[in-house]
Amino acid sequence: MLEFQILLPSIVNGLTLGAVYALVALGLTLIYGVLHIINFAHGSLLMAALYAAFFAHAGLGLDPYLAMPLLAAAFFVVGYALQRWVIGKASHGKDQNVLLVTLGISIAIENLALYLFRADTRTIETPISYEMLDLGIALVPYPRAIGFAAALGIAALLWWTIERTDLGRAIRAVAKERQGAKLVGIDVDHVFALSFGIGTAVLGAAACLLLPSFYVSPSVGNVFVLVAFTVVVLGGMGSFTGALVGGLAIGVTESVGGLFLGQQLGQLGIFVIFIALLLFRPTGLFGSRLA
């Protein structure tokens, strides 16, 4: 069938895109699940990470895949510091303040990038940029195939950290009952900052996976922050499985929707899903809990 021959590659394409969405959303959902805050700056931090990956490649000649651990570590530090010394201090115990502060951070970062790097769109070329992986049903560019596999790998690593390590146990304890965690001697502020750091480190990794097949510009974060929010709301705020499944679903929706509606209205589709979800199903399709 002809439609099938177009549709199948489109779905595969959507899945590779969705895996990266899922990764970005995982960071957001981790932060939400533990701190119960909505991090507006998530998109602009991803944008910053993309620039970091870009300049690591352009300036230092560092391959994005090799730069990944480096960037993840750097962004862990950035996230830890942001939560510990900026966001945490400014919240005064009110959700709305957190929202305002992360909004402020995102505006500052985004426009600083605009000031420093202008509005230009930049891309990089790696040796494998134009190589294709033949899956039989579809041709997938290598960077996307690697992105897909690595995103799932990182998600698994994250899951393992949360479920199987002492750090993960502390994080889960704080997520569930912060007063109780405090009483048994867990440094809640530290765990908050760690969780925020991990959520941001994921962005550092995602940027490295994304850059070879994508681009960077000061406003690129907006594309992702919306998708990430939609994924997180779709999957249920704070739900790991939800973020994964939601990310893949949104990727496929965008890819297939773009096939039929064109790119601009495809984007509108995501917004409409987002609004509808907020209105009718704010707890998401998978309920809300940290895995």
Binding site: L100, G104, I107, A108, E110, L112
Partner: peptide
Amino acid sequence: VFYGVLLV
């Protein structure tokens, strides 16, 4: 940038 910092 200034607005963002000011907000924070």
